[in-house]
Design a protein around this nucleic acid. Structure first.
Lengths: 221, 221
DNA sequence: AGGTTAATCGGAGTGTTCTCCGTTTACAAG
DNA sequence: CTTGTAAACGGAGAACACTCCGATTAACCT
């Protein structure tokens, strides 16, 4: 009755002769080969059928490995999804951390915020199915990995742009609408285009960065 | 391969002698009895073990009905969750549609917006587990039922408070952070209290309603 | 080479969600 | 009370997510 599934530690190796704590060694050759094969198969299955309905059993079968192998490599469905997201995500992070302005450093914080939200919408739309999967998965995962990086980045910019705000909360609040499922809903049922969504967020960000110039309670009507 | 589950139409009855379209008749006595029994059992199981791990098989077993019956009554897991949410939701809707100000009619729109978001956070927190379940379920459900009502209400108020904004988009954007899983994350990992979350939203709403006084582009720094 | 051993592997097994369909039942009309 | 029938019932069954564990193997050491 009730829950039963526990979580595998997504084994990340350790060589025998070096049991030094905190020194993860590279994967064994067969493990690395399987990881690549699984990712490759999963990616092509998603390209063909969409991300909604991938079964990990099926992925394992097509990849020619046991189910256990998939789970040992990636922990669970969310882990595999995260791995599929990883490539583009790394590129995206580079672009706002070290790329050219207005996304990267060099532009005023307010502009970077708008540029970041704009790019983030694009990012999510580019892998909408995968992000939607992520939101469906275990609670821990959703606010893991990419989300945390995005949050730190946005909160830092907000701290510069509006010194009287709570940047952590505000970053959560601005990140919340950039959500694969909400965006899909806005497109399908509200008839909005991606451009309109981006414009709406940009304006919201502008209003927010301007509006938080005054301390709490200072602008009460 | 890939998806297989189709969706039952959550049978809502129809009497034989009155096949008039659009005139749904009350449920048969046995059906109504089972619906009540299932809800009752599910509610008590959730009260005891939390909402995360209820198995519909288990609910069916304890309620003394077949699994098929559960699915015929409620469509799927999300449908049952929605039913469990329904009572309080109706009360909540009454309170902002016809209750006393500032939540109900009578107060200025800006105040009602703040009051509404405040109450909504309370609402979500009161059944956090169930709302979290809902977000995990099929995409159609998440933006169904309660969400749509909340959205219409908030968009209406926003249309009054900030005539230059896109109320539909803005309502989505303000509703997005009021999210069971985000709130849980903010509590657990950011160490925020519900009071702080409510305060943050209230301030955001104030800034937004004030900031959208000017047309798009008008307040560019 | 050959030995050692921890990491890896595969797949049978458990619990869950949801569907299908043959059987039963509530209820209205005669 | 009997009968007709749409609706409801139950539970076997298909597909899936994830776990467990005995067998296998890569890679380091002598």
């Amino acid at each position: 009755m009730f829950s039963v599934y526990k979580r595998y530690a997504p084994t990340v190796c350790g060589r025998r002769t070096l049991p030094l704590i905190g020194q993860p060694q590279p994967e064994r050759a067969d493990a690395a080969r399987n990881r690549r094969k699984i990712i490759e198969v999963a990616a092509s299955m998603i390209a063909e059928h969409g991300a909604d309905d991938i079964s990990l059993d099926e992925v394992a079968r097509v990849a020619g490995v046991g189910v256990g192998t998939v789970y040992r490599r990636f922990g669970d469905r969310a882990g595999l999804v995260l791995a599929l997201i990883d490539d583009r995500e790394r590129q995206f992070q580079e672009s706002f951390l070290t790329g050219p302005p207005p996304l990267g450093p060099g532009a005023p914080a307010a502009e970077r915020i708008t540029a970041f939200l704009d790019a983030l919408v694009g990012r999510v739309v580019a892998q909408q199915g995968l992000f939607a999967q992520l939101e469906k998965c275990g609670k821990t995962i959703r606010y893991s990995g990419p989300y945390r990086v995005h949050h730190v980045h946005l909160a830092t910019l907000l701290a510069q742009a509006c010194p009287n705000a709570d940047p952590a909360f505000l970053a959560d609040a601005l990140l919340a609408p950039v959500n694969a499922r909400l965006i899909a809903f806005q497109q399908e049922e509200r008839g909005m285009t991606i451009g309109e969504i981006k414009a709406g967020l940009a304006r919201l960000a502008t209003v927010v960065t301007c509006g938080y110039g005054v301390p709490p309670g200072g602008s009460q009507r």
